[in-house]
Structures are given as structure tokens and as C-alpha cells.
Design a binder for these strands. Structure first.
Lengths: 220, 220
DNA sequence: AAATGCATAAATGTATACAATAATTCATGG
DNA sequence: CCATGAATTATTGTATACATTTATGCATTT
């Protein structure tokens, strides 16, 4: 949306964050300020700011006077976050069913049509992006800033798990069918049905992860 | 627990955080790095780190090259966070009922006895602290790092609302009774009952806020 | 040969200096 | 008297310098 005008510190933050979330920086790796700074062509100051933010988010641990170490998520953490999403996204979509306006619904519809198109063409990377967008719109439609903020975080945490999952053609198709079902319920302003659809959607995602990509997250 | 050995930046972070959460820094106030630094006797560097963390948490907004402004929570935000707690804490306590060990249960019991004592003496401030501790132990007993992390955040966000609420003697007593009921269910390893008890507890907290302290949060 | 202790090196924590951008003030012109 | 604009001030963004703490390596000792 607004990829512009961020300060260097924010760019460094997002960069390191991505590299942790997609596994480039493995769990336990020490992040040295000077090294990262040199690599990205900036001084230690913005790097430090980024590291402090990452610690707050729980992605790294900073041991005073020692260093910053990647924590990452264990397989159990991933499952836990899915469960939390199950709870919060259910709440969110119930609210969305009651408060979503026509414009929001149309934008979601647009996303799902696009996703169907890309599915038919076999563009799996695009599907992941559209998945992000659809859920983002759903969070927005919930009408709560704090809830939206939390859900976006969780969604990003699961980014890696989701990518491996959606690269599976079958799962991608099913996922979009579930999206349609959610949207249908929202359009009908049927909160119960919407919540149930979301619960189903996330439960399927969990199940799919357990089967296929469960081993890729370096859980101890 | 471990109030020691934090860096200056972390202290500044916690200080500003508190002042936002208990309303010292009102919504819309601009936080200037030099001013805060002088006030706390530190340079801009740790202050900046703190501000970046606060932005990530959503407590302030940083407009690049302009400044940092307190966002704070509206009355609706407070209600939303209570709802989110309702969902997540229900999840957490279900897990706690299945996985809490004897030591954890005894520690919670200890807290509740202490709370009863302080109630009888009319020490209302102490009650608030014990409420924090009890829920903290409950989160720990849930056995999920990420869930614990999230719930602790939400609990802190509601700190101000809770304080005004627990200063009411009646509510304080009822709250502790509800705590006992939760603990009872956990001890019996009755997940359903525990979840129901938590839902009841939080619903009462919401209700109490709506009646008594709802106007104090400057919702627009 | 293993362990201990000191000296050196390296990394973090903080402060200050410099650069760039936004806000303010004051003067000037209509 | 008000509006406009340039100069000044203030504030943020970044880099560098200094202080402190921790890690490392080598010599010495047992």
C-alpha cells in the first residue's frame, strides 16, 4: 500500500524481519550490529533501532552487553499461532459480517476472482500475495484497529508456513474455495456462518501444515 | 521478577510506556526526543530506541521527519481488547487446565489467599498487583510462549481500566471469587469449566467497566 | 599438559556531531 | 493590516566517537 517514505531504520527492520521469517537467519544465529550495518550500507544506529523492535516482537532475544540472537518459531509456536488466529479471526469475521460495507465486500470479491484466475494459470506465488490481501481486507472489515493489528502480525508470522502450503496446487484451490465461503457468509451478514467458515479455513490450514510442511520449521 | 540489568533504552521504554498507559501522556501529545532525554537524564539515542518500540506496539505514531505522537486507546479499543482477551484467555486457560503442574497451581493458590487477605484489610492497590500476578501465572501455565506474550501485552494495555475497576470494593471481591473459580476448574483439569469461568470473569470485567469507568478513557 | 591470569581485541551501550527536513519568525510588499 | 516569502530555529535522521563490558589468545604456572 504505502511502501514509500520509510526511514532507514524501518527498512532495516523489515529486511531483518523478513530474513528471520523466511529462515535466512536461522534460529540461534547472532546478529552483530556492525556486520549487518556494513552489509546494508548503513551505520549501527538504524540497525540498533531495528534490533530493539525485533526483540519487542519476540523474534530475537537481546542479552545485554552480549548480543542479539534469533529466536524464531518452533513448530509448536506455529501451531499455537494458528490456534490464536482461530480464536481472533473468528471474532474478527463475526464483526465483519455485521459491519462490512459494500465497497469492502467488492474489494474482497475482486481479490478472490483474481486468485481464481491465477490458480487457473498456475501462478502460485501470486496466490500467496492474494491470500495476504484477502485476509488483510477481512481484518479491516472487522472494524477494530487493535484486532486488525494483532491479526496482521500473526498472519505475517505464519508467512513461511503458508507459502510452502500454498505452493501445493490442491491446497491453494481449496483455500480459495474456503475464502469464497467466508465472503459469502459476510455478504449475507451471517456472523455464525462466517465464523464457522473461518474456523474451517484455519483448521484446514493447520491440518495441511501438519501433513506436508511440518518438518521444515526446525522445531526441537 | 527480574527488574535488574536492563539497558537505559529499556528503562526509557518502560517509563514512557507507563506514562502513556496511565494517561500522563495524553492522546495526541507530541513526544520530543530531546525533551524526554533531558527529563530522564539520557541522550537521544536510548529515547529513539524506546520510541521505535512504542510505535511497533501501536502506542504512538511516528511520522517521518515530523515527530512521535501518542495514539493511546479509545473506549472502543478498550472494549475490543477485552473481547480479544475473552477469546485468547479462554484458549489459554483450557490449555492450562490440561497442562498446569502442581507447583504452578500452588503458586496461584498462594496469590489468591494473599488477595483475600488484602481485600479484608482494604488494600486495594495491592489487589491490582495480585490480579496481574494471578493472570501472569495463568498465562504461564498455558504452556505457550507466544500466547503468553500476547496475553501479557493485552493485560498491560488494560492496566488503567482495571485499576479504576478494582478500586471498587465490590468488584474487587467478586473478581477474586471468579479467580478462585478459575483455579478450581484448573485444579480439576476441567477445561470446559475453566474456559467458562474465564469467560464469565472477563465479561464481568467488561460489564463493570461499562457501568463505572467507561467515561474515563477519552473515547471520541 | 591443563588451568589460570593478564593483555589485547571485539562488540555493545551511550553520547555527541553532522546532515536533512520541517516549523517558526520576522521582514517586506501589497 | 494581512499575506507572502526568505532566513532562522528547532527537530528528526544518520553517522561517528568514546566508554564499558565481554570474548579471545597467549604466556605463565602448577
Amino acid at each position: 500500500m504505502d511502501g514509500i517514505s520509510h526511514s532507514l531504520g524501518q527498512l532495516v527492520f523489515q529486511k531483518i524481519r523478513e530474513e528471520i521469517l523466511d529462515g535466512t537467519y536461522a534460529k540461534g544465529k547472532e546478529l552483530k550490529e556492525t556486520a549487518i550495518g556494513e552489509e546494508l550500507g548503513v551505520s549501527r544506529t538504524p540497525v540498533r533501532e531495528a534490533l530493539r523492535q525485533l526483540e519487542l516482537e519476540g523474534l530475537i532475544t537481546i542479552i545485554p552487553n552480549k548480543g542479539a540472537f534469533v529466536v524464531g518459531f518452533s513448530g509448536q509456536d506455529i501451531r499455537d499461532i494458528y490456534e490464536m488466529r482461530l480464536a481472533l479471526e473468528g471474532l474478527c469475521v463475526k464483526r465483519a459480517a455485521l459491519s462490512a460495507d459494500r465497497v469492502q465486500i467488492e474489494r474482497m470479491e475482486e481479490i478472490l476472482y483474481l486468485a481464481d484466475f491465477h490458480y487457473s494459470k498456475g501462478h502460485m506465488e501470486q496466490m500467496a500475495g492474494l491470500d495476504d490481501k484477502f485476509h488483510g481486507l477481512l481484518y479491516e472489515a472487522g472494524g477494530s484497529k487493535v484486532l486488525e493489528h494483532a491479526l496482521k502480525d500473526y498472519h505475517q508470522y505464519l508467512c513461511r508456513a503458508r507459502k510452502t502450503s500454498l505452493s501445493n496446487r490442491e491446497r491453494a484451490q481449496q483455500s480459495n474455495r474456503e475464502h469464497w465461503r467466508i465472503l459469502e457468509a459476510v455478504r449475507e451478514q451471517n456472523a455464525e456462518k462466517a465464523e464457522e467458515a473461518v474456523r474451517m479455513h484455519i483448521k484446514c490450514a493447520i491440518q495441511n501444515m501438519e501433513i506436508s510442511g511440518g518438518r521444515e520449521h526446525g522445531q526441537d
